[in-house]
Amino acid sequence: MTQRQVQLRLGGGALIVAAFLALFAIPQWVSSPSNVGNIVLSPLFWPYALAGFTGLTGLGLIFSGLQMQGTDEPVNDPIEDTGAAWLRLAAMAVLMGLTMFLLPRLGMVLTSMLVFVASAFLVRTRHPITAIVCAVIVPLVLYAFFAHVAGVAIPQGEFLRLP
């Protein structure tokens, strides 16, 4: 991805966001009382104004992107195996989704232990034993602090009840 591509994609994205907000999201999901006399004081005014400015910024980004000379220099550092990197990112997204699903069921401590181990192996740790030991200790220490020092009601889950 070159600088020019970044600028054009951002501009296009900003225009799409602005159009989506103005044509669909704001009319659909922002409610306003019917008796507002002045448009400036309406709850709709600020989101519409921001959507308008986002559209203008998008046009500016596209214009400046078109002004740029073509260069093949990528903006991000290249890596060896892009396919594997995308797979790891997808796995991380799944892990985050699973975390949200498991937190109320397994509780925070057990879920955190699983998250720790999974993410350590996802980043290809060279210390698997240390990772497993830390995966047990770190969530327990954090539980002890937040539950007993900070007084936070940490979710316990259905399988493990900690003091």
Binding site: M108, S112, V123, T125, T130, A131, P139, L142, A150
Partner: peptide, 17 residues
């Protein structure tokens, strides 16, 4: 690569709290 998973767990606890 041990620190990063620890940071993730800390983020989860911290934000929940």
């Amino acid at each position: 690569r041990i620190l990063i998973p620890a940071v993730l767990v800390l983020c989860i606890y911290g934000v929940f709290a």
